[in-house]
Design a protein around this nucleic acid. Structure first.
Lengths: 194, 194
DNA sequence: CTTTTTATATACCGAATGGTATATAAAATA
DNA sequence: TATTTTATATACCATTCGGTATATAAAAAG
């Protein structure tokens, strides 16, 4: 049981930190808050994570694994552009269902101020997730001449649209559904193919 | 000259506060930083703005006026949907050119955490700006049957796309041009009319 | 059984935080 | 000219910040 307790402490810290990081900006989250919620003391947190940035890094590692795995898996399915983009939309909408706190946190990553301590880590993770979607467009470049060198801008536009839909879901404007995914991808593809 | 100096102090505080608020999150900006940059002391700032929230409010009032005025002016031109939306895009892209710091700050407003002190103020301003665009879609509802009750979702999608383009501009992915405005609006309208 | 490693708490650190009591000097008002 | 208002600074407040030196207790390794 002692072993369980130790693991639980670390997991509890990660869970409460995610909860706070999803509700406030990084700088507004106090270490004391995290340890109070977790029922431990500061040295325990610093033992496990070193410093505040390490805690943030730990949260991303713990809860971001799944997203990266799913995104990196799209390529192997070898679907067409429409199919792959639908899968991307599905993965992000699933993320809201399965871990809405991490989804909220992630949604903030592309707007983290340039001189924030966590900019490199957060933006790094964001760009990694971004890169798998960019790969989808790059693959299409080879097939479709008039998309040449527009992977980045198409990818950003598409992800921007997905993030807009995610915001709408969080604000209660729409509900997640297969139709929503279909609409999102269709709306985007009409825009670029016309 | 003394009178000028007094006015300058207040203006200097606003300018430096905007600069910091555009580069960091609200909680990460220290009052001391603002006063140091402005070459004054804390009581002077507190004399003019009361508290930190008051300073934030002052910045929005000072630099947000222009945006609201322009947006509220669209209605009076009585253009069609395409024309009005182009004007919205134009206003936001102009904002980047004329006051990129405020544009950056504004871009963060829709993602401000729920329990942030400034949530009400920032979100209030955001929704005011939002409402003028929503009005454009509401007017269209009366003319176009299949848009019924979709003003909010269309407006959010359109603004999400505009914000995505703004992010791209800040990230150096694209440059502002008339073509960009045209593309943005066209891409959106293809999506909803098809 | 002893030693080392792991995981925890008590009690503290200096620095920075937002904010203010008080004094003062200049300007506007009477 | 005397008084009030406006705008400023010095010097301080309690609190919180991220982080740590030290002690300790349990578990693992030798």
């Amino acid at each position: 049981m002692e072993n369980e307790e130790k693991i639980d402490n670390k997991k509890a810290i990660l869970r409460n930190a995610l909860n706070l990081f999803s509700k406030k900006q990084y700088e507004a989250v106090g270490i004391q808050e995290v340890v109070d919620l977790s029922g431990i003391t500061k040295p325990t947190l610093y033992y496990h994570f070193g410093n505040k940035i390490g805690l943030f890094e730990g949260v991303i590692r713990e809860y971001g694994k799944n997203l990266i795995e799913r995104l990196s898996d799209i390529e192997s399915h070898n679907e067409d552009l429409t199919g792959s983009l639908k899968r991307v939309a599905e993965i992000y909408f699933d993320l809201i269902r399965e871990n809405s706190n991490f989804a909220k946190m992630f949604l903030n990553f592309n707007l983290i101020p340039e001189d924030s301590e966590i900019r490199v880590i957060a933006f790094g993770f964001y760009m990694e997730a971004f890169s798998y979607v960019e790969d989808i467009f790059k693959k299409e470049e080879n097939k479709n001449g008039n998309m040449k060198n527009r992977s980045k801008i198409y990818c950003t536009t598409f992800m921007g649209m997905i993030f807009t839909y995610m915001s709408m879901i969080f604000n209660g404007f729409v509900e997640i559904s297969d139709k929503l995914i279909f609409d999102a991808v269709r709306q985007f593809l009409y825009g670029i193919y016309s």
